[in-house]
Design a binder for these strands. Structure first.
Length: 488
RNA sequence: GUCUCCUUCGUCUAGCGGUUAGGACACCGGGUUUUCAUCCCGGCAACACGGGUUCAACUCCCGUAGGAGAUACCA
């Protein structure tokens, strides 16, 4: 059987990391099995729909480098791939169930629905529709119609018996029909389908073979099976993925930290790190391997390596992956990624000069091992493009020295500056080490005042390299500024 | 409340009847080092509990507890 899978997001918000992981698993599964990956937009909730959300969806996957084989933007044999453009199809199918007596019109007002829900919860009963309209007489229906009430169409869930849903991961899941959502709405009064109808109809029509989606959908799966049966269709193969949780074990949400791929992107995470990390949430390859490129995953992904238990999203481990992938970049690649960040943070102007860009490129070896996210570059490199901000004079004084000693160190360092640019790292170090010995201080103590003078911080990229990039003149003036600060 | 699912170090996980229960992140030490980082070495740390089945259970079965998800004219 040929594999056809889909990602079917609802454009109501930014692409959530959990949803994206589901999309990725579908995509990898399709690739690994030479199948098709379909994108379908489930925009049936007009109230929550947003254009920005749709744009974010496209931006996110473009950034991740993931393409679908069929979708709204590229078409395909089962177009359209946007549910709002398929209304007639859903209506037709709802009408069919209505005609066959498998669904019915419901005229209940929202007020009445609210009321029964309140009563039910007050009496500690399961909230749900009371099936009031399930057995309306023809006369009653005509009367409501005459009043101009727009009905919804509800599905007749069997009152007895049970339904079994098979899941590749979870096995057979049985449910008594009486425990299934009592007669869910299929077609809303605005004429749009609900998720249940549209999803089932489209998955069947688009010949979806496997449904890989998060476990939060398990409870509605038996209902979907019932729907397939009502239409006389065979359900696809289900595989409910473990969910992604926050550190407290609850569904990952805003209060745990970033949740959208966009936020991670803006924070300076690399797509390969996000993909790699997220793929290891609920899936593993073996007992040791943890680095996977997209193309590795496109080859290696299998359902039988999936885990059942929910996974907690660990921001620290993502950081680690990101640092790893940053270090894997060539200096050229990294510079290209860092320049936009530098511009955004005002370290570089909007239209930097070629010399400035060259400087950024030259600085990459100095900061590559020091970045966890691309955004770290701004803090690390700002000193190259602007005078250090005000810092307290005490910063210049190492623990082992006093102000006088620090001042002396700066003076000696200034004297060694000439010709530093042409010296190798080793020569420069030998030179300064010799001076430190002469002064009877440790190299670190000689260098620390200079480091602060030059970069404005005790934490910085390697000093000699930094000085070389900054230039002797600027270095000298910063050292002088520091010395005068100390003499105040 | 009801239904369903889940349960190995703090976290992600390996394990598929017999292992000193392995790896990674985090954390804590140590080394390299010019600060920070990188890198290297070492350490800490887990089979939720109780019954079975079996010569033998982390592994199989049944309970219990805990956790999560779902209970919409949202998906």
């Amino acid at each position: 059987m040929s594999v056809r899978v889909r990602y079917a997001p609802s454009p109501t918000g930014l692409q959530h990391i959990g949803g994206v992981r589901s999309a990725l698993f579908n995509y990898f599964f399709a690739r690994a099995n030479r199948g098709a990956f379909v994108l379908r937009i489930e925009d049936t909730d007009q109230g929550r729909y947003s254009d920005e959300a749709l744009q974010d969806l496209y931006d996110t996957f473009a950034w991740l480098g993931v393409r679908w084989d069929e979708g709204p933007d590229c078409g395909g044999p089962f177009a359209p791939y946007v549910q709002s453009a398929r209304s007639a199809i859903y209506r037709e199918h709802a009408m069919r169930l209505l005609a066959e007596g498998k669904a019915y019109e419901c005229f209940c007002s929202e007020a009445r629905l609210d009321r029964i829900r309140r009563i039910q919860t007050a009496n500690k009963m399961a909230p749900g529709y009371d099936r009031h309209c399930r057995s309306l007489s023809a006369a009653e229906i005509a009367e409501s119609r005459a009043e101009g009430i727009k009905p919804v169409i509800r599905f007749k869930v069997p009152l007895e018996g049970g339904t079994t849903m098979h899941d590749v991961l979870l096995g057979d899941i049985e449910r008594k029909n009486e425990d299934i959502n009592p007669d869910p709405v299929l077609l809303k009064s605005d004429g749009f389908p609900t998720y249940h109808l549209a999803n089932v109809v489209d998955d069947h029509l688009m010949e979806i073979s496997h449904i890989l989606r998060a476990q939060e959908w398990v409870p509605s799966a038996p209902l979907h099976v019932l729907l397939y049966e009502s239409f006389g269709w065979t359900p696809p193969i289900y595989c409910h993925l473990p969910m992604v949780m926050g550190s407290d074990g609850q569904k990952l949400s805003k209060r745990h930290g970033s949740t959208s791929v966009r936020e991670f992107r803006d924070a300076g995470y690399l797509p390969e790190a996000v993909i790699n990390y997220v793929s290891l949430l609920g899936w593993s390859y073996d007992d040791t391997r943890e680095f996977f490129s997209t193309s590795d995953l496109e080859r290696l992904f299998t359902l039988d390596r999936l885990n059942k238990a929910p996974a907690v999203f660990d921001y620290k481990k993502l950081d680690w992956f990101n640092g790893h992938y940053i270090r894997m970049k060539s200096d050229e690649e990294l510079a290209e990624l860092v320049v936009p960040v530098l511009k955004r943070d005002g370290v570089l102007a909007e239209n930097p000069q070629a010399s400035e860009l060259a400087l950024v490129r030259e600085a990459m070896p100095l900061i590559k091992e020091r970045m966890r996210v691309l955004n770290d570059a701004s803090g690390l490199l700002r000193f190259l493009f602007a005078e250090p901000a005000e810092y307290p004079a005490e910063e210049l004084v190492p623990k082992k020295l006093d102000a006088k000693g620090a001042r002396a160190a700066l003076g000696e360092a200034a004297g060694l500056l000439e010709g530093l640019a042409s010296r190798s790292e080793e020569e420069a170090e030998r030179l300064f080490r010799g001076k430190a010995d002469e002064m009877g201080v440790k190299l670190g103590d000689l260098l620390m005042p200079v480091r602060v003078a030059v970069t404005g911080s005790r934490v910085s990229p390697p000093l000699f390299g930094s000085i070389r990039l900054l230039g002797i003149e600027k270095t000298r003036s910063r050292i002088e500024r520091a010395m005068s600060l100390l003499s105040k």
